[in-house]
């Protein structure tokens, strides 16, 4: 039984998953990284590879509402999951409050950490709508930024929290 199972799984698999609200089916090896499937098969290049070992957070996406490093997720484990990438955050041309705040506060410089950073902030604000500065700093501590020193990022998240509360 195991032998036949092995033969079957060495081939490409069909994996269905919902990405930014749309049902997608990809053919992939089960150990392909979710990051690579998003970027190479689905053309969603907003998630970036910075380290390939779950340290920098630039590949962050939401998997069933939980922030994950997509470089550490084998695509088979994302089967039937609901994935949100940076491309799915804005509603059409209308930017999300967080995206607007990052623009205004200088939270994005080179931009490479920005998609992951915004998703980490989004995940934080869902759980803690009124975070303290320390909570913001902790919530983003898995997302490395080499440009800003994080100050304007933390300010952007605080600003977005205020605006979401006021809305």
């Amino acid at each position: 039984m195991t032998e036949s199972l092995s033969l079957e799984i060495r081939a490409l698999h069909e994996v269905s998953l919902t990405v930014n609200g749309e049902l997608k089916t990809v053919r992939a090896y089960p150990m392909e990284r979710l990051l690579d499937v998003l970027r190479h098969q689905l053309g969603l290049t907003g998630a970036k590879e910075g380290c390939g070992e779950g340290e920098c957070g630039s590949c962050s996406v939401l998997l069933n509402d939980a922030l994950v490093n997509s470089c550490l997720v084998p695509v088979l484990q994302a089967k039937d999951a609901d994935i949100v990438t940076i491309e799915g955050l804005a509603a059409g041309v209308q930017l999300d409050v967080l995206q607007e705040a990052f623009l205004k506060s200088g939270g994005a410089q080179c931009g490479i950490c920005t998609p992951g950073m915004i998703l980490a902030a989004h995940h934080l604000l869902r759980r803690k709508p009124n975070p303290t500065t320390e909570e913001i700093r902790e919530g983003l501590s898995g997302n490395l930024c080499r440009c800003t020193g994080y100050i304007q990022i933390v300010e952007a998240v605080a600003e977005a929290a205020r605006r979401r509360a006021a809305a």
Binding site: L5, S6, I9, R10, A28, Y29, P30, M31, E32, R33, D36, G52, P74, L76, Q77, K79
Partner: peptide, 13 residues
């Protein structure tokens, strides 16, 4: 990525 996904098997019982 220094491994080839085609070389690996993964099952999810």
């Amino acid at each position: 990525m220094r491994s080839n996904p085609a070389d690996y098997q993964l099952v999810a019982p």
